[in-house]
Design a protein around this nucleic acid. Structure first.
Lengths: 244, 244
DNA sequence: GTTCGGGATTGCAGAATACGCAACGCTCAT
DNA sequence: ATGAGCGTTGCGTATTCTGCAATCCCGAAC
């Protein structure tokens, strides 16, 4: 592992939370100002960070440019996008697209509900594995070894009273998920919000992503949400079919 | 300057053009595979890159997450956004927002024309300084020393027959720009596309950005474009006023 | 099932590189 | 004027990075 690069990435992450001055960053990383300065210089030269007139640093424009491509490059996203829009319009509810990345489940795309009820998901950020529909779908699809490893290492934070908080119950839940072909989240992550999620597969049957519908209780109760299941599954199938 | 960090940024830039394998990257950078591997590992750990099952590397999700914040953070963009939308809707033409960053002019935001005539600008990417309205506005606003330095170092690439190709003529043009308070681009960057641009100032009068309108000749000739000048200037004033 | 080959990965020793110290400079405020 | 608070620079040291060579892994071909 490269030390200086690691620190540089820390800097970027930190700048993601807001502007910083030179030694604010030095203190945060616990290194000498000089070190931070040299890293910032390097990143500034490539426009990964920018420095304003008052010598405050923030994220640079090369980052937007890259991010736009990164998003587009995501093959899953490309083929899924039109179908997600359709599902979003037909149901009027919040639609999520997520993919397995590097031992985590990451939200790749999000289409908000027409009634903008705020949800704590964000594109590019990892989803909890034990209490989201997409998390369960993707975890259930992992090879046994990896799945077990993850089951053991999760911290099972209880977000709501319904959250599954131990490996055994989650293992059972994954089993059910695999068998019926979709996952549920009955207010396990956010109180009063239920979700259902389905897997996306490539031509070989390998799971490459997950789609989900999220609906606040006040709009539809869980049984009413289930009436949208056929739409969700149809969307998942359509995306999978497009995904040659 | 940090060497390893520099190489890491090169890797990211390269991945921005598409997926790469380990030694594709090694060849591209002209370094040993080991070196590339260590850098990739570090970035993978922070989700700046991801690796698929076939060991091909691509940009990771941390990047989207950061970019979203970066864009929002851009103070200019925040206050400008609603006004730009308004200008875009009123005129129906392509609107650009750009800012000075680090010796370059970067497009921060772009709202397309309703008639989607394609333009070669892209958010996050630098604009040419000698042949775009935003470039002229922002260059004209730089302190003399820096302005002169830039004037000398530009390469004055001739994109069209109208492009200004030497420092002296550009210096005059900047002079005019400053005096009348707005800049023109009469098909200097793309043939058949004219632009007008105006500066955004903060409360102290310092120029913090530029807005421009771009219209293809087939829709409006230059004189007709000038009829939109009051709208452009009004928008620029409104943004500047909001920018406390 | 075995062998082959391409690519990824690891250990290691040498050397370039990044590190932190300390001194300097700059700007702003008192 | 004077000083405080930051940012910046030069430089010697040793830590970190580098590239080589050997090894491993995985899939393909026989």
């Amino acid at each position: 592992m490269s030390q200086s690069l690691g620190r540089a990435l820390q800097i970027l992450t930190s700048l993601g939370e807001g502007e910083r001055s030179l030694d604010q960053l030095a203190v945060e990383l616990g290194v000498h100002k000089t070190t931070v300065l040299r890293l910032l210089r390097t990143m500034e030269a490539e426009r990964f960070v920018r420095r304003d007139a008052q010598h405050r640093y923030s994220l640079g424009s090369r980052l937007f440019a890259l991010a736009d491509v990164a998003r587009e490059q995501h093959v899953v996203r490309q083929v899924a996008a039109p179908h997600l829009r359709e599902l979003n319009q037909k149901t009027g509810q919040t639609v999520h697209l997520a993919a397995w990345e590097n031992g985590e489940v990451i939200y790749i795309d999000k289409l908000d509900s027409v009634r903008s009820v705020r949800m704590y998901s964000q594109v590019g950020v990892p989803a909890a594995l034990h209490c989201t529909a997409v998390g369960k779908v993707l975890l259930a699809a992992q090879p046994k070894r990896q799945r077990e490893a993850v089951l053991q290492s999760l911290d099972y934070k209880a977000f709501t009273p319904n959250t599954i908080t131990d490996a055994d119950r989650l293992r059972d839940e994954l089993q059910v998920t695999t068998e019926r072909g979709w996952a549920q989240d009955k207010a396990e992550h956010e109180s009063f919000i239920n979700c259902i999620g389905a897997p996306l597969t490539d031509s070989t049957g390998r799971v490459v992503g997950a789609v989900s519908l999220s609906v606040p209780d006040v709009l539809l109760n869980y049984e009413q949400l289930l009436e949208l299941l056929p739409d969700l599954l149809a969307t998942a199938r359509a995306i999978s079919a497009d995904y040659n």
